[in-house]
Amino acid sequence: MAAVNVRDVAALAGVSLGTVSNALNRPDRVSPSTLRRVHDAIDKLGFVRNDAARQLRAGRSRSIGLLVLDIGNPFFTDLAEGAEDRASEAGFAMLLGNSHGSAARETAHLALFEEQRVRGMLISPVAEIWPQVTRLRTRDIPTVLVDRAISDTSFSSVSVDDVAGGALAVEHLLSIGRRKIAFVGGPTKIRQVADRLEGASRALNSVPGATLEVLGTRALTVLEGRRIGELITARAPGARPDAVFAANDLLAVGVLQGLTMVSNLRVPDDIALIGYDDIAFASATVVPLTSIRQPSTLIGRTAVELLLAESENSADYEPQQVVFAPELVVRDSTALVVAEPVLAG
């Protein structure tokens, strides 16, 4: 049986092909009665328009590509939700890709999005991808970097000041009297990790006698955090840090497990612990987790707004670099323990 096409709809509705096209794409140009006849014909025939073919003819689609570092990280899930909500409000669909920290997967996703002729791309890059995004621009595909600051002001970006966030985390640990601090995170080729470590180092340099030990990880996962926590637990008491700053909350959750599941170590009494991102799960851990909050949903929404602005006004658009300030959220994992007064008998 042959597929139903636009000509069949036009014939049944008693209108021209142009009227059917307007009913599908510009309904404001069609009278209500004619629009009703066209849609009645569509329903009766079971017509489904070929959007892929239409987009190829137009050269543009109603979709936006979003490429994130790790969709398993709730931070990126929340970011994607914010981006998808804003895109949907503007009549766009969101195509999601997950590089999983792999430059090869990142390149493959970028190529696939380009083949789909997306209206634009939002990218949280693994490393340096300027040749790729420059090439996308020459093909009229605007790109906005998300969760990543950029020195090239010819591109738009939405990020959080991670250097300030790293400093905020360590300043808090220093304020509660901790002096042997371990930074847990990696790989440092990820710009966000490097920036948070830089901020931590700057804050530590202002306090004489304080030390910062870097404990690298292969990934930003709970399992890697647990591995580091177990390594710390295996040390002699005097060789352990008295505080840990984890580069994200997943690592911090793993460190918490490694410190407390197979030992008598207490958080925060023996080792204070702070994470980064303030994912929803951070407040629900066995010891509620202090964290540096990022406005993840707002980052996603803002990135789509910048992308739409550039797409709709490409000739006159001035790229923007939006940088949000991080926020310290204090919970039990760094809470100061105040001894109760001893009452005289």
Rank of each mutant, 00 (worst) to 15 (best):
E198S: 08
R179C: 02
E198C: 11
A239H: 06
D195T: 03
V48R: 10
R105E: 14
V253S: 04
S61E: 00
D140L: 10
R179W: 01
Q192C: 14
E115Q: 12
H109Q: 13
G216A: 14
L289R: 02
Q294D: 05
G199Y: 00
G65Q: 06
R49K: 06
L215I: 05
R117E: 00
E115I: 10
H39Q: 14
T19P: 01
V253K: 02
L66K: 10
L306E: 05
A239S: 09
V160G: 03
L306K: 04
A315I: 15
E327I: 09
I150R: 14
A11L: 09
A219L: 04
P27G: 15
L122M: 15
I271Y: 00
I64K: 04
R293E: 09
S31V: 13
L250G: 03
N264L: 05
L328C: 06
E171T: 09
L231N: 03
K180T: 02
Q192T: 15
H109G: 15
V287Y: 01
F76S: 04
P319Y: 04
N248P: 03
I271W: 00
S63F: 15
G101W: 05
T134S: 12
Q116N: 09
A103S: 14
G275T: 06
Q320G: 09
L231S: 03
A282K: 11
L12M: 13
N73Q: 15
V193W: 01
D195F: 01
D270T: 01
I274G: 02
G216F: 14
Q257W: 04
G185C: 05
M121A: 07
L298E: 11
A282N: 11
A236C: 13
T107G: 12
T233V: 06
F324V: 14
S33Y: 11
D152C: 08
A182T: 01
V163Q: 03
S21M: 08
L56R: 00
F92H: 11
A23T: 08
T285Q: 09
G166I: 00
A90V: 14
